[in-house]
Nucleic acid binder design. Sequence first.
DNA 1: TTTCTAACA
DNA 2: TGTTAGGA
Length: 132
Amino acid sequence: MNDHIRRNMPLFPISIVKKLTELSARQIRYYEEYGLVFPSRTEGNQRLFSFNDVDRLLEIKSLLERGVNLQGIREIFLLREHNTSKTAGPPMRRDGDLTDLELRRHLKNELVYTGKYGRTSLIQGQLSRFFD
DNA sequence: TTTCTAACA
DNA sequence: TGTTAGGA
């Protein structure tokens, strides 16, 4: 049994995830509805989160605190999936280490993009200061 | 008792 | 996001 299956094994109910992440059940369910996490379900339709799900939720929480909104987080996750799946080799980066360098480039582009087309910015408040 | 969905004084 | 109703 490798790490992958281990990290994705459905283990804890929302009550445990609440404690682990310090997020409200409302938030956890909302983030799922938004497509940021996809916990499996029990026969009784109750959510069962994997270690990976908890990890993602912690990252979501962290990014939200840094001023990134849900749409931004969604894109960050999409970007990671696009270049994490190709890395089947040894240097598989975990956690939020993708972030620093690539996240900065991405966020900066978002600022430029939103500035050009006047759409709702993906970045809120002070975060934009990191890119002057 | 815990969790689920849906909806909003 | 919080909170609550009503059911499983």
